[in-house]
Amino acid sequence: MKIVVIGGSGQIGSRLVKALQAQGHQMVAASPSSGVNTITREGLAEAMNGADVVVDVSNAPSWEDAAVLAFFQTSTQNLVAAARAHGVGHYLALSIVGTDGMADNGYMRAKKVQQDLIKASGLPYTIVQATQFFEFLDLIIQAGADGDVIRLSPALIQPIAADDVVAALSELVVSTPQNETIELAGPEPFPLDALARNLLARKGDKRAVIADVHARYFGVQLTDKSLTPQSPSARLAPTKLDDWLKR
C-alpha cells in the first residue's frame, strides 16, 4: 500500500512513517523539506500519484489567527483536489478534541475549517480528534504563568502519549474509512491545575498554581468538556501519565 504522510517530518508524522514502513508499506514522508509543499502544490501531484491513502498530520508554520486559517484552508483544498485527481481511497486527518467548541481560539477555528473541507470533499475519510499530548503539558502549564504564580483552570484535561496517537493512526490508516470523526484520549482525566502542581513538584519548581475558573486556555475559557472526549465511543489509549513520566 502506498501511503503519503503530509507533515511526514514532524513529531507524529516521522514516527508514523517509521511504524508503517516496518509493516512493509510504501511510504512518502511529504513536507517542504522533502520537496512537497501543500500551499504552492510543488511536488504534490508526484507524491499523490498511485497513493492509496493520504494522512494529514501537518501543522501551520505560524499560529497567528489569519496565517493559521490561510494555511489549513489552502493546504486542505489543495490536498483534497490532488487526492480526488489521483483516486486516493482514504483521506485520514489528525485534529484536536474540543475543536468544535473553542471558537475563541484561532487555531481551533482553522482546524474546524480543515475538518469541514474534508467532510464536504466527497472522499472516503476518517478524522481523528486527539486530546493534548503529554509532550505538550509543559507548554500548557507555562502558558498560565502570571509573574511568580501560575493561573490555570481547574477544568478537566485528559492528555495522551504521542506514541499512542501514532499507534491508533497506524491501525486506522490500513482500515476501512470510517466517514466520521473518532475521538482519541489518554486513560485518565485530571483537573488542569492539580496536574500542573504534580508536574511542577516533580521538577522542584516551587511556583504556586492558582485555580482560576476564569483563567484562559490560549484565549478560551474552559469547561470540563473542553479538553476531554465527549463521545461514548471515544477510544482510550493505554499509557498512563505516571508510566510515561517514568520512561
Rank of each mutant, 00 (worst) to 15 (best):
94 L>C: 01
162 A>C: 08
128 V>E: 02
134 F>P: 11
171 E>Q: 14
116 D>M: 09
13 G>Y: 06
142 Q>R: 10
192 L>P: 01
26 Q>M: 07
132 Q>Y: 08
200 L>I: 10
42 E>Q: 14
31 S>K: 05
10 G>P: 02
66 A>W: 02
137 L>N: 10
180 E>I: 00
43 G>K: 04
239 T>Q: 08
144 G>D: 03
5 V>R: 01
162 A>H: 06
53 V>P: 06
153 S>R: 05
212 D>M: 14
180 E>H: 02
1 M>N: 01
83 A>R: 05
157 I>M: 12
177 P>Y: 06
106 G>T: 09
47 A>M: 10
227 L>K: 10
142 Q>C: 00
91 Y>Q: 04
175 S>K: 10
137 L>F: 13
209 V>S: 13
232 P>Y: 08
140 I>N: 02
66 A>G: 05
209 V>D: 15
25 H>E: 13
88 V>M: 02
24 G>E: 08
102 M>C: 13
78 N>F: 07
208 A>W: 03
210 I>D: 12
6 I>N: 00
86 H>C: 04
55 V>A: 07
190 F>N: 05
118 I>Y: 09
234 A>W: 12
209 V>K: 14
214 H>Y: 13
218 F>E: 12
24 G>T: 07
196 A>C: 09
130 A>Q: 12
101 G>D: 03
7 G>V: 04
45 A>I: 01
208 A>I: 12
83 A>C: 13
2 K>H: 00
241 L>Q: 09
116 D>E: 15
183 E>Y: 01
180 E>F: 00
